[in-house]
Amino acid sequence: MSLDPSFVGRTYPPTAPYQVGREKIREFASAIGAADPAHHDPAAARALGHQDVVAPPTFPIVLTLAASQQIIDDPDLGVDYSRVVHGDQRFAYTRPVVAGDELVCVSVIDDVSSRGGHGFLTTRTEVATAAGEPVVTVWSKLVVRGEG
C-alpha cells in the first residue's frame, strides 16, 4: 500500500472537547486490573496532589483513537482500514490525565513512508485542555499491509 508522502505535516481540525469522567477512569482502570486507589478514590488521588482520580498511563488512547480516525478516514489519503495494523505507540506526558479534564486533540501526520509493499503512517496527537494547557503527546505508527 503506497501512501502519498506529501501528506506529512498535514494538521487536522481540533476535536470537540472530551469531558474526562470519574466513572470512565474507574471503568478503564478496572478493565486493565489497575487497583491503585488513586484511579478509584478521589481522596487517594488528592493525597498525591491531583484534583480527582488519575487515569492510567494508556487512558489517552480512548481520545486519540477517535481523533486519529479523521486521518484514517481522510479520503484523499486513502487508507484501507481493514489492512491497518498497530506498529508503535508512544505517550509523552506533561502531566497525568485526571477526572474533570476537558481535553481537545489536534492530530498531525508526522511521517508517511512505503517499504516492502507496505505503507507506514505516523500520527501525532497533541492532547491539551480546552484552555490550552498541554497534557500529553501521543504518537501512533500504523502499518497498512500491502495486498498479498
Binding site: 486493565i32 491531583h50 488519575v54 492510567p56 498511563p57 494508556t58 497525568p96
Partner: peptide
C-alpha cells in the same frame, strides 16, 4: 495491542511505586 501496553504500564507503575510516575512510555508491537 493497547491492552498489552496497558498491562505493561500497570507493571511499570507498580515497580515505580506510584500510579502517576510514568512520564514517557513507548512500545513496538
Amino acid at each position: 495491542g493497547m491492552f498489552t501496553m496497558a498491562l505493561v504500564g500497570r507493571a511499570v507503575a507498580e515497580w515505580a511505586g506510584a500510579p502517576d510516575a510514568i512520564v514517557d512510555y513507548n512500545v513496538r508491537f
